[in-house]
């Protein structure tokens, strides 16, 4: 398989703490305007991997990292961290709206980065909520607390909040794992729409979801990217447990 250079390139990335290796020799390409999915069981290092993209791993000084993560061909460490994180957004596993109004949640990011008129801000909030497929449900409730929304609505609000700073890449770390099937379906539909405008990086351990929404899938297992096409790898005892993932992916 020939890999085209992507918007994000991971090269020989290793991340470890004093006690434990989390990522080993990871090579990965994130393609522009596609849903790039990373699957793997819990604890395989998926969340850590995508947090190296926007340098959120730096919040944990115990993590030591070597190897490279390139964004537009340039090492992410050479970007200003604030602008890097604006350009690579992240939606968390658990919906984490701020304890403020719906409007203020969405306006939060833009206000951090830009001096905006009220009209312009209203426009951004509107557009972001529309993009996140939430606008119709909350248009009369913008001043209500975000905490009054349902779990699925909160997660879409968090997506709107991430979109409001106009990122290029939107990373989602198991965004539906705490949601009911209907809410989950809405977000999956949303991901497929978003890829037209954004590059989406999805982390999930839900094989069905990966199959439904992905343009490309990588398997992360015990901190390594595993090429599930190679049968001999699968015979190694340490990958025994991964087999059922691979079986589903192969379909």
């Amino acid at each position: 398989m020939i890999r085209m250079p992507g918007i994000i390139e991971v090269r020989d990335l290793n991340v470890a703490t004093d006690r434990q290796q989390i990522l080993s020799n990871v090579h990965l390409t994130i393609k522009e305007n596609a849903v790039n999915t990373i699957v793997g069981p819990s604890g395989s290092g998926k969340s850590t991997l995508i947090r190296t993209f926007n340098r959120l791993t730096e919040l944990y000084p115990k993590l030591r990292q070597n190897g490279q993560v390139l964004f537009h061909g340039k090492d992410v460490r050479d970007y200003r961290v604030i602008s890097l994180r604006r350009r690579i957004g992240l939606v968390f596993q658990k919906p984490n709206p701020f304890p403020a109004s719906i409007y203020d949640n969405v306006a939060f990011g833009p206000k951090l980065h830009m001096k905006l008129t009220r009209t312009k801000l209203d426009e951004i909030v509107h557009d972001s909520l529309v993009s996140a497929g939430l606008y119709d449900e909350v248009k009369h409730l913008l001043d209500k607390s975000a905490l009054e929304l349902s779990g699925g609505q909160q997660q879409r609000l968090c997506i709107a909040r991430a979109l409001a700073v106009q990122p290029e890449v939107l990373m989602m770390d198991e965004p539906t794992s705490s949601l009911d099937p209907i809410a989950k379906g809405k977000i999956e539909d949303l991901m497929m729409e978003l890829r037209n405008q954004y590059t989406v990086v999805l982390v999930t351990h839900d094989m069905g979801q990966a199959n439904r929404v992905s343009d490309s899938i990588d398997l992360l297992y015990n901190g390594r990217i595993v090429d599930y096409d190679k049968a001999e790898v699968m015979k190694m005892p340490e990958f025994e447990q991964a087999k059922h993932f691979v079986m589903k992916l192969a379909k």
């Binding site: 961290v81 602008s83 957004g89 701020f98 939060f108 951090l112 968090c158 909040r161």
Partner: peptide, 21 residues
Amino acid sequence: PRELKEGVYALGGTKWEVGKH
């Protein structure tokens, strides 16, 4: 919650903004 602090950082917020908000 850690999610709230990381939420601000992930939007490009600084330590001061995490502290303030």
